[in-house]
């Protein structure tokens, strides 16, 4: 019975075209197919090269390492904002198409309360908020709108906008000036979750967990991001903790964000730590657990 319901190819390398499951002999089973497998009539055949994996009770997938990423619901990925539209950020997640990140897909995001990124950044949208009575606020709102349009059309630098805003402030001597930047998000690195992934449309991302909380999602400040393969990301995220991370974590303190799309972000107090950690991770892909530990030890010796 076990032999019937489980494929003989589990944990073996399969190549496209291989037939791994016969559905006609397992009529009462429900099986779930992951990436790299497809149903072809009465059989399940392989469409990518890799190792066939099986997870109880009924999941099958082909594990492979690629430079491109195929979006999949509930994956956590690292994306780079490439454009900003009224309702969406367009985010590159190394997939076939750009992904949409709705502007409101942040914790507490609603039409009223558009989320802000409070970051010390440079360009284009400056917003003036005055701690004065509501009648003034309205006027300021208009003012800001005007300034924004001016900036857009004239392409004035952010410093000029600030000067402009300060000059306007002269007319409200008793107001408290409170400037919040709306920096351009283009180029920003985000840790996001894939919420929709269909072949026919752009994938959709979210910066909240399923409960609508920010969790650890959102923009990643500072640090260093490098691109590797999807296989390496999966290795780093595997449980129990991957040997290279375990070995590094014992000696050093650093922050790391790993996207299933093959992007890894590392941050630490000292730049030297960032470099060491990222180099160790990049070289670890082809190494076994023991080799990884040895490699980390050697690196640490060289540093000390």
């Amino acid at each position: 019975m076990v032999a019937d319901s489980k494929s003989a190819f589990i944990d073996q390398t399969v190549v496209p075209g291989d037939v791994v499951l016969d559905l006609s002999s397992m009529s009462n089973h429900t099986i779930k197919l992951g990436q790299g497998l497809r149903q072809d009539g009465d059989v399940i055949s392989v469409m990518k090269a890799g190792k066939l994996r099986f997870s109880k009770p009924n999941k099958y997938w082909v594990e492979s390492s690629n430079k491109r990423y195929v979006p999949c619901v509930e994956d956590t990925v690292l994306g780079i904002v490439v454009d900003q539209k009224a309702d969406n950020f367009l985010v590159d997640i190394k997939g076939p198409t750009l992904a949409f990140l709705p502007v409101l897909a942040f914790e507490g995001g609603s039409r009223r309360n558009k989320p802000k990124f409070e970051v010390k950044l440079n360009r284009v949208f400056a917003f003036l908020k005055m701690g004065v009575s509501s009648s003034f606020t309205n006027k300021q709102g208009l003012e800001c709108h005007r300034t924004e349009n001016m900036v857009k059309s004239a392409g004035i630098s952010s410093e000029k906008v600030l000067l402009l805003l300060f000059s306007e402030c002269r007319f409200f001597p008793f107001s408290e000036l409170n400037i919040i930047y709306f920096p351009s998000q283009v180029g920003k690195l985000l840790y996001v979750r894939v919420v929709k992934a269909n072949a026919d449309m752009n994938p959709e991302l979210s910066c909240t967990d399923v409960n609508g909380k920010a969790a650890e999602f959102g923009p990643l400040k500072d640090g260093y991001m490098f691109e590797s393969s999807t296989g390496l990301s999966r290795m780093l995220l595997s449980s129990p903790t991957c040997p290279v991370l375990e070995a590094l974590g014992k000696k050093l303190s650093f922050e790391i964000a790993i996207g299933l799309n093959g992007r890894v972000w590392v941050n630490a107090e000292a730049p030297s730590t960032v470099i060491l950690v990222s180099n160790a991770i990049m070289t670890s892909e082809s190494l076994t657990g023991v080799q990884q530990r040895i490699m980390v030890e050697k690196l640490m010796q060289r540093v000390q």
């Binding site: 190549v15 090269a49 594990e63 492979s64 296989g231 290795m235 595997s238 991957c242 076994t288 657990g289």
Partner: peptide
Amino acid sequence: FLRRSLQSRVPNDLPKTG
């Protein structure tokens, strides 16, 4: 031959994802 050469490159001890 093609199958063998495809097998060689697949990392051999990728631990299972949890």
